[in-house]
Design a protein around this nucleic acid. Structure first.
Lengths: 257, 257
DNA sequence: TCATGCGTACCGCTGAATGGAACAGCTCGT
DNA sequence: ACGAGCTGTTCCATTCAGCGGTACGCATGA
């Protein structure tokens, strides 16, 4: 063994997950050597594991290039939390889109990041960088701030410990500013975001709490700056989020325990 | 995915895949003992593996109940073949829906089964049993027959070897009848299905071949019997499938190698 | 031609994974 | 109250599956 990165990965599963996790949005396909480089595993190990993953249809291979496989697609469609949330939220999201004409996001909080579960694009509003299954730091998005404002304090501590990386031109990178913003959001029930997740972004979000008051997710309306009337949109998002939450039983499909 | 082969499972990955694969549509959650029963693994093994899978976010746990986790959802969204196919097909599918008002399916062939990649539901047509990520025996569906008719003979042999299980009232369960039907489909470029995948189902499908003539997927229009004018729909599906195929480069996103 | 990239195969060593058994906690039915 | 039967977890000696350094075959392209 060489000096080895503090490769504390002991189990096979962890190595396999490392390999699968090495695939990013922009990677159409990866090769064995590239995977070995990204994961820090030996090339022979990657070769063996990928062979097995291909057999299980977790990966597909075409010549030398590997891509994520059908089995993952199928399992992904069965993942309970997103599936359930989607099913229950879709009508409210459609209403929101009808009412605003803009793009609607449904996201949940995972650690210090938000994960987008469903997106309904507004009719004349093409290219937002958000993607179903995509992640963004919570503190840089309206949905993220909406959820942070209704989370346990440790969650916020963790976010702050992460260093508040800058994502857009006006991302909040200061702890005090973030705490202040979250306090306002906790009072209002609505979070805003302007040029924080990307240039020209504008967004209003509201948290979705289940019948027991536990945080489950967040809904948002997004647009380019100037294309949105805040005073008309905020109550709409808020009421949609409240209505959705009222339909979620206590202890329902909570994302983070 | 029926990997219920008895004891050929040696690797950890295979055991883990067995566990993940044990989750079905109707299972909201499963427990350790139930998983052990379904997979044939020792309870202690399942307990250890699930603990690890939870750590990797491939599973979530709430109390004693386990469900498929967020990581799978995310990976599923990145799976290259479905993602690419969806992206390129979505406009043609929307056109088809506009033209027919009915539900449009996009599926690909995996072994002896079809897997639904995308579904656009018609406006007044609610409850079809199909599901994105869902599977059905190829010989019992229009999309399946459309693809079988343009596949290598070994694929058909495999399907026949599987015994042509009955799925709907009029599923083709006879080898000769299936071969005859496929020959017609190969000539026409369109496959039909009536009461074969479910009672009252009616469906017209056409294969999607890439620029090199290789089979990639299939498109279909589905409805309840009587709600569809065959002579108007068949050319529409056919042309949509041809148009989509023409946009797919040779050796593009083939599902099965 | 050699240099450098790729992916695969080999193989001795080792420690990670296995599964039976024992345990702890819960909800029944009586 | 009790035991039966279920749940999930922990322990531990055994062993074999996976590890990774090395070598190899095959494409590139300089």
């Amino acid at each position: 063994m060489r000096t080895a990165e503090w490769n504390s990965s002991s189990s096979v599963l962890e190595r396999a997950a490392l390999i699968l996790g090495a695939f990013q949005v922009q990677d159409r396909t990866l090769g064995v050597s590239e995977l070995a480089r990204r994961t820090g595993l030996a090339k022979s190990t990657v070769s063996r594991l990928t062979t097995e993953l291909v057999r299980l249809q977790y990966l597909e291979r075409h010549g030398q290039s590997l891509r994520l496989g059908l089995a993952l697609f199928e399992l992904g469609q069965l993942a309970a939390t997103p599936k359930e949330l989607r099913r229950r939220a879709i009508a409210f999201m459609a209403d929101l889109r009808n009412a605003t004409g803009q793009t609607i996001h449904l996201a949940l909080l995972d650690g210090t990041e938000v994960v987008y579960i469903e997106i309904l694009r507004g009719k004349g509003t093409p290219p937002l960088p958000s993607r179903v299954g995509g992640r963004l730091p919570a503190h840089a998005t309206a949905v993220g701030k909406a959820m942070l404002a209704f989370s346990a304090p440790e969650v916020l501590d963790q976010v702050i410990a992460g260093g508040l990386p800058r994502v857009g031109p006006d991302t909040i990178t200061d702890e005090a500013a973030l705490r202040k913003a979250l306090a306002e959001i906790a009072a209002d029930g609505v979070a805003y975001e302007r040029n924080e997740s990307a240039p020209d972004s504008f967004c209003a979000a509201s948290p979705v709490l289940d019948a027991g008051g536990a945080l489950v997710a967040a809904l948002s309306v997004s647009a380019k700056v100037g294309h949105l009337d805040v005073h008309r949109v905020a109550p709409a998002v808020r009421t949609a989020a409240l209505a959705l939450g009222r339909q979620l039983p206590r202890n329902s499909v909570l994302a983070e325990g």
